[in-house]
Design a protein around this nucleic acid. Structure first.
Lengths: 149, 149
DNA sequence: CCCTATAGTGGGTCTTCACCTACTATTGGA
DNA sequence: TCCAATAGTAGGTGAAGACCCACTATAGGG
C-alpha cells in the first residue's frame, strides 16, 4: 500500500475542504502563540475591538464580536486580571461596565499582532507577496458575504 | 455606540484571521450537511480515501488521513453499519481488516460531494468563477506547504 | 516454541467551544 | 412607586475533537 500520495484528491478538489484545513492551521497557529501568553483568540479579538473602536460596554463587545455576554464577562475578567483592560461602572448608567484598554493592553496587543504576522508568514510561506495580497483580497470578499445565506 | 462597523479592522487585516473565519464557516457548512445524514467530516474523508485509492487496511487509513487508529475503528464501524463499506479479514494477514467501499457507499459519497459543492457555492458566492479558481489555486499552494515549519 | 511487534478495538480522559439558565443590580417608563 | 426590561455575572451543560491506554488476536523472527 503506497501512502505517499497522501490525502484523497477528490477532497482536495473542494475549495471548502482546503479552506477548512488551512483555516484550521491558521487558527491553531494563532492559538498556540496566544496560549504561550495564557490567552485565547477571544482575548485578542476583544483587545483589538477596544483598540479600534475605543471603550465599550460589555454588551456592545458581545454584539460586535458576536459572542455570548456571559463569555464576554469571563474574557474581560481575565484581561482585567492581566492588567490589559480597566473596568469601571458607567456613572450615567450604573448597570453598565465601561471596558477600556490600558497602555499595557495596547502594548500586549501590538505584540500579539506581531506574533500573528509571524504565524502568517509561516502559513503563507509558499505564496509570493502578490499572491498573499490576492489571497487576502479574495478572503475579504468571501468574509464579506458570510452573513447572508 | 455605533456597532454597524462590525469586526475590528486590525483583525480583518490579518489573512490568518480571515482564513480562520472563512475556514470555520466552510467546516460548519460541510458538517451541517453531513450531520443531516448522521455523518461527520471523517466519514466523508474515509469514503473519499477508499474511492480514490481503493481498499485500505484500517491502519493505512489512519496513516493516510492522519487520524488515530482507534478513531478509525469507530468511523469505519459506523460506515459499516450504514452499509457504506465492507469489512473483511485479510486472508494473508488475519490481523488486518480490509475496508472496501460498497456501491451504496459510492452513491452516498457522490451525494456528499454534491452537498459539498452546494455549500461551496454558498460560501464562495461573492466570487466570480475566475476568482474561485484563483482562490483554489492559492489554497492548494498554502495547503502544500502546511507540513513543513 | 517463545517473544516481540503489529492490527484492531473498547473503553476511557481532557480540552475547547458555544450556549443556556438563574440571579442581582439598575434603569426608566407607566 | 411599581414593574418590565436591561447589564452583568456565576455556573453548568452538551457536543466535538484529539488523544491515550489496556487488551486480544495474529504474525514472524530467532
Amino acid at each position: 500500500m503506497d501512502l505517499s500520495t497522501g490525502r484523497p484528491p477528490s477532497l482536495l478538489g473542494l475549495s471548502t475542504y482546503l479552506l477548512s484545513l488551512t483555516g484550521k492551521a491558521a487558527r491553531a497557529g494563532l492559538a498556540e502563540r496566544l496560549a504561550a501568553r495564557g490567552l485565547r483568540l477571544w482575548h485578542m479579538a476583544t483587545l483589538a475591538a477596544l483598540a479600534d473602536f475605543g471603550p465599550h460596554a460589555q454588551r456592545d463587545l458581545a454584539t460586535r464580536l458576536a459572542m455570548d455576554p456571559s463569555d464576554v464577562a469571563k474574557v474581560v475578567d481575565e484581561l482585567a486580571v492581566a492588567g490589559y483592560v480597566d473596568r469601571s461602572r458607567d456613572p450615567g448608567d450604573r448597570r453598565r461596565v465601561a471596558v477600556t484598554l490600558t497602555d499595557s493592553g495596547r502594548t500586549a496587543l501590538a505584540e500579539l499582532d506581531a506574533d500573528a504576522r509571524r504565524v502568517q508568514d509561516e502559513i503563507l510561506a509558499p505564496l509570493s507577496r502578490e499572491d498573499r495580497l490576492r489571497l487576502h483580497t479574495l478572503l475579504r470578499k468571501v468574509y464579506g458575504g458570510l452573513g447572508r445565506s
